[in-house]
Design a protein around this nucleic acid. Sequence first.
DNA 1: TCCTCGGTTTGAAAGGTTTCAACTGGAAGG
DNA 2: CCTTCCAGTTGAAACCTTTCAAACCGAGGA
Lengths: 349, 349
Amino acid sequence: MTSTSPLARRASAGRTASVKDVAVAAGVSLGTVSNVLNRPDRVSPATRARVEQAMKDLGFVRNESARQLRAGTSRMLGYVMLDATNPFFTDVAQGMETAAETAGLSLVLCNSRGREGREQHHLELLQQQRVQGLLITPVSPESDVLEALRDRGTPVVIVDRTRDDPSFCTVAVDDVLGGRLAIEHLVDRGHRRVAYIGGPPSLGQVRDRLEGARLAWRDAGLPDEDLLVISTEELVVAEGRRAGERLAGIASSKRPTAAFCANDLLALGLLQHAITAGLRVPHDLAIVGYDDIEFAGAAAVPLTSVRQPRQELGRAAAELVLAEATDPDHEHQQVLFTPELVARASTRA
Amino acid sequence: MTSTSPLARRASAGRTASVKDVAVAAGVSLGTVSNVLNRPDRVSPATRARVEQAMKDLGFVRNESARQLRAGTSRMLGYVMLDATNPFFTDVAQGMETAAETAGLSLVLCNSRGREGREQHHLELLQQQRVQGLLITPVSPESDVLEALRDRGTPVVIVDRTRDDPSFCTVAVDDVLGGRLAIEHLVDRGHRRVAYIGGPPSLGQVRDRLEGARLAWRDAGLPDEDLLVISTEELVVAEGRRAGERLAGIASSKRPTAAFCANDLLALGLLQHAITAGLRVPHDLAIVGYDDIEFAGAAAVPLTSVRQPRQELGRAAAELVLAEATDPDHEHQQVLFTPELVARASTRA
DNA sequence: TCCTCGGTTTGAAAGGTTTCAACTGGAAGG
DNA sequence: CCTTCCAGTTGAAACCTTTCAAACCGAGGA
């Protein structure tokens, strides 16, 4: 009577069918239904078929709350991201999801939008859901909220941020190395006066990339004063344009022949200004960006940029939090990924 | 003895404290603890204080699974998005989250990545979680999976897609109107030969925007053959460049003086090709894009584009699914938002 | 003194799943 | 014919919260 099953579904719409309903319909005990779901090999084929038919007829859907309640833990990881509209973090999340999926878990995404209050709220909710592990790019990496979580027994991994305290797993990308790569590339290309454009200095990433740049500059035996530092208010396109104006104001004999920008938005803004000002890129001004966002390669002059392994970052973080969740005497690790320079036309000889 | 509370927390780390533990610690019954949580006004101040202290000491965190099990429904909405790395959908999700938040619910995001299998899987999981409502930008809007969901009693709203069947709530943006706006703008600017660039035609959005373009073109009394249609394989930057090559191959007397691209990526590719080919934008070629993505305004020549009210789209969808969840005799609605043309330098006279 | 009343507090039941020890019936072995 | 064994099946208990009718208690009124 397959034709009745859609009707049955609609008729029972008042309450969703439970294992008990299925058991009654199939004429077996409730334990058997559970066995069909969880250890099908222990059930005789005939019974199994009958139960499965009953489940189909009744439109049975497992109640995850009840499972979790019984199991004491959910089948989820949570990621509190800093900004869900930033492609960097969505790529990171995608990497996490891949790892979660292979472990049979799902990933719940929350968006703090950079606000501590929202972050706190989401952490609270995730804990109430008894997630197996928490991934977070915190608004303030040193906040003691994280300690409270960990002390309560929830595995926590900090993503794309570092923290002095080695009692947390952290996963980040080596920004100092990224800065080195950019400058080494420019020095290789023969540049001897270079600008570093980035800010505000309160951002760890901005500082670290500059530090790497300085180290490479010195290693090349070049004088400090020829690495010009231009500080910006924010890492946005408009500030890149403004930096271009400042560069343009420098006498051409002293003007840097290349710029290393702390992110691609600045670099795109700078590129835009250069083009409208009639400068040829890279001939008059070479440009290196950072992040290798989607539009770096699609810019008017395709942009050389430092790429971070975003998906791997996410994958590693998820694997780490899983390790912490399963292995009781897990050692906290500080994983540092290696960025990579992608050379394109904006620095071509 | 506040100093012992952190110790207590760590000591009890074996199992998270439950209401029962709190009740014992505070010397009250379990029902009273629940009252403190849910109807604090019915509890005498002294008792309440005692219970709250006990909760703090034990690091009590409500078990959401148990709550849900009891309540029969979760406090979540689910959104199965088509592509979490596409800014359009993250903005839509943000709008949804706003609406969910004001209703005291959280939004669970899932990413189908355009694959039916993943979509199906996520829908299954969300149902198991007994979400109050489902929002979805389906891989195939006509798929009968959605019917199955609805018949099982879960409110469903289709987002950014339309469906002939009026038994679903849908929320979308009027692409026909968007096409009209773009062409009317170009005709206003004096263009009498225009190219429509977009594809593949299997995408509803590509078809609808072209339809709107044609309608506006005819309304202006212009001959059909002067609206040149260039079909592309995908909506990506590279295809925009290729379209540029095709335009360049047309004798200048017959060449369109403006192009309307089905999305901004195409428009950016076209712009790039135009610049490198030495065409002046907008003087030799005016360009209109679609979507108004972040980089439209930051392009070498800032791009005129048709903007969709993304956040409002998400907010409306979430409100609709909530209405359907609470109001038993809810009428399905097809909401159509109005796009808006943002004029920038790429079409300036 | 007894009763009533209001504000508090209590205890049990319910909600759906999983687990596990216990049971069943039939087949194989003695 | 009795025992042993085993695959298959069963039923109760546990997970934690919320709800609700019932119990409690002290005070004020009769």
